[in-house]
Computed example of a mutant assay.
Amino acid sequence: MNCESPVLFDLLPGDILVTPEQSQVVVAEEEVTHVVIAPGEQGPPGPAGPPGGGGDQYVTRTAGQTISANRLLYDRAGLVYPLDQADAENIFAILGLAVSAGQAGAQISVQRSGTVTDSAWSWAYGRVYLGSNGQLTQTPPTSGFSVLIGFAATATSINLSINDPIEV
């Protein structure tokens, strides 16, 4: 119970009260009126969460094979694999962009939205699509599926906004 100020309430037989220190549990044997619970003290901070944005901007999955960073992935039964723009079987299971690399069985960080930056990129200002084997490209596909991944705002950054696949 988080109390800003003392709270008064009644206990009925069988009601359970945990003391503010949570070191003692009291079960009322008879009716008690006007039990006072005083405000508690702030507890210690919890552990830090993973770096990144809020919500489901980032997820962690297990690599189904060796995966390089900056590959678009799909999820199949909790394992992730690079997605190919011609893969009709898995094209609708798009998960996001690998922002870490790993061997099969390793945990992979996957970004689903927001800005991704990599100093090795050299994008032209404009659209970015899914290519072969999870690679990103600025050349729209002429067969398979067209999947707009996002927009290159600078030479080294992409604003992810993964769109639904469109069969070409």
Rank of each mutant, 00 (worst) to 15 (best):
A93S: 12
E31Y: 13
Q111M: 10
L8V: 14
N90R: 07
A155Y: 11
L17W: 09
T33C: 09
I149R: 00
T117S: 15
A93H: 06
S132G: 03
Y125L: 13
T66N: 15
A124T: 15
V32E: 10
Y81C: 00
A106H: 07
L97Y: 03
Q22E: 14
A88T: 13
P20T: 08
L83T: 02
D84Q: 02
D15E: 06
S161F: 13
G131H: 08
L136E: 01
E31Q: 07
P39K: 14
W123D: 12
E29C: 07
A101N: 06
I16V: 15
A69R: 15
S100H: 11
G55L: 08
Y74S: 03
L148T: 10
E31H: 13
V32A: 13
T156K: 10
A106V: 00
P141N: 08
T154P: 01
L73W: 04
F9Q: 08
V80Q: 02
I67Y: 01
S68Q: 14
W121D: 12
A153P: 00
D84P: 02
P45K: 07
P165R: 02
A152W: 02
G64V: 03
V32L: 10
A155W: 10
L11S: 00
P45V: 00
V99A: 05
I94G: 00
P6I: 07
T60G: 11
G150P: 01
L136Y: 02
T66W: 08
E21Y: 06
L95S: 01
A48V: 11
Q42V: 15
L11E: 00
T117W: 06
G54F: 04
E30G: 14
Y125C: 05
G105H: 05
T115G: 00
E89S: 11
P141G: 09
P141K: 04
Y129A: 09
Q107C: 03
V168Q: 12
S68L: 15
Q57M: 13
I158G: 09
T62I: 15
I37Q: 09
N133M: 03
Q85W: 15
L148M: 11
A77P: 00
E21W: 05
W121T: 10
S5E: 14
A152R: 05
H34I: 11
P47I: 04
S109N: 12
T142L: 10
A124E: 12
A152N: 09
V7Q: 11
L8Y: 13
L136H: 05
P50C: 07
F151L: 06
F151S: 10
G150Y: 03
G105F: 03
N159H: 12
D164A: 13
G131R: 04
A153H: 03
D75H: 01
E31P: 04
A152S: 09
P39R: 15
G96A: 06
L97H: 04
G114H: 11
T66F: 08
G14C: 05
D87N: 03
Q135E: 15
V128W: 06
V32M: 09
Y58I: 12
